[in-house]
């Protein structure tokens, strides 16, 4: 990251293009840089700090297409003050954006390999930029699989896009939910049960995993049984953040700052920490 002349704690102003309802508590917000700013570049896996005047600032992963420089997209679960206000914003309203911050998924380094993307719940949002990238450069990758688990059929994100990608036949997509009623024709069971259904070559596969920590831990166990090494798996971690740039101290995770050393970590680097309570 280049040293900037302006203070890294001061946001740039973006305007809302539109707010799209994804599920009952989750929405996608599209933002346009205000006049004078030319586009916005980020790497899949990075996050920004979104600021709403009068409410505060929250770290949110970027969920949009990295090739779309004119529009910055986030998918957000509305659970707190700031996120609830974000959901109510109207087209044209201005908010503050700092970033992008943090580490990225190893998208380029995974070229020539089998790529397995495992998402749990809202964890699909930070992985969607990976999907856009690998599908745009489909020939550079071997098998691509997406395993996505969420709570109920009503909680499935990006329904239309999942259908579209599935119809392309160049990606193996499996979706499962933890709970469903009788009318559900899809899979029921935690996301780890999907791993036995996909084909990959464990000597050259890479797994990119994002979801609740416990889901990631069990997913990793399953992949280890299938022959993946710790160095072939990546996870995205989450902690309280106030600054995004290593000043506020809140996101410390053992020796790491999740905001600048993460959020994406190669699993072998955090294996010991993921087993420690209250770290």
């Amino acid at each position: 990251m280049a040293r900037s002349k302006t203070d890294p704690m001061t946001p740039a102003i973006f305007h809302v293009k539109r707010v799209i309802r994804e599920t009952e508590d989750t929405f996608t917000i599209e933002l346009i840089p205000s006049n004078g700013t030319t586009g916005f570049s980020f790497k899949p896996g990075q996050f920004t700090m979104l600021y709403v005047l009068g409410a505060g600032e929250v770290p949110i992963s970027i969920s949009g297409d990295p090739f779309e420089k004119r529009c910055l997209t986030h998918t957000i679960r509305s659970v707190g003050n700031v996120t609830r206000l974000l959901q109510k914003l109207k087209a044209g309203e201005g908010i503050g954006v700092r970033g992008p911050f943090g580490s990225a998924w190893p998208v380029k380094a995974s070229q020539g390999r089998d790529v397995i993307i495992v998402a749990g719940g809202i964890g699909l949002a930070p992985l969607r930029p990976v999907l856009y990238t690998v599908l745009k450069n489909r020939k550079k990758y071997n098998r691509i699989s997406l395993l996505y688990g969420t709570r109920t059929p009503e909680d499935i994100l990006y329904h239309q896009e999942l259908m579209k990608w599935r119809s392309q036949f160049d990606i193996d997509i499996h979706v499962t939910v933890d709970q469903a009623g009788k009318s559900w024709k899809g899979n029921v069971g935690v996301v780890t049960t999907l791993i036995s259904r996909i084909a990959f070559d464990s000597t050259q596969a890479v797994a990119l995993i994002c979801g609740p920590e416990v889901m990631m831990r069990f997913t990793i166990q399953e992949f280890r049984q299938r022959g993946l090494n710790n160095e072939d798996m990546y996870v995205s971690m989450e902690r309280n953040m106030k600054c995004g740039i290593g000043f506020c101290g809140h996101c410390q995770y053992g020796p790491y700052f999740i905001c600048k050393d993460g959020p994406v970590f190669r699993y072998d680097l955090v294996e010991d920490l993921m087993k420690v309570e209250e770290i």
Partner: peptide
């Protein structure tokens, strides 16, 4: 104080 802003019609100015 890190910075301050004034509310405007459609957002705010730093």
């Amino acid at each position: 104080k890190l910075w301050q802003a004034k509310r405007t019609k459609d957002g705010f100015d730093v």
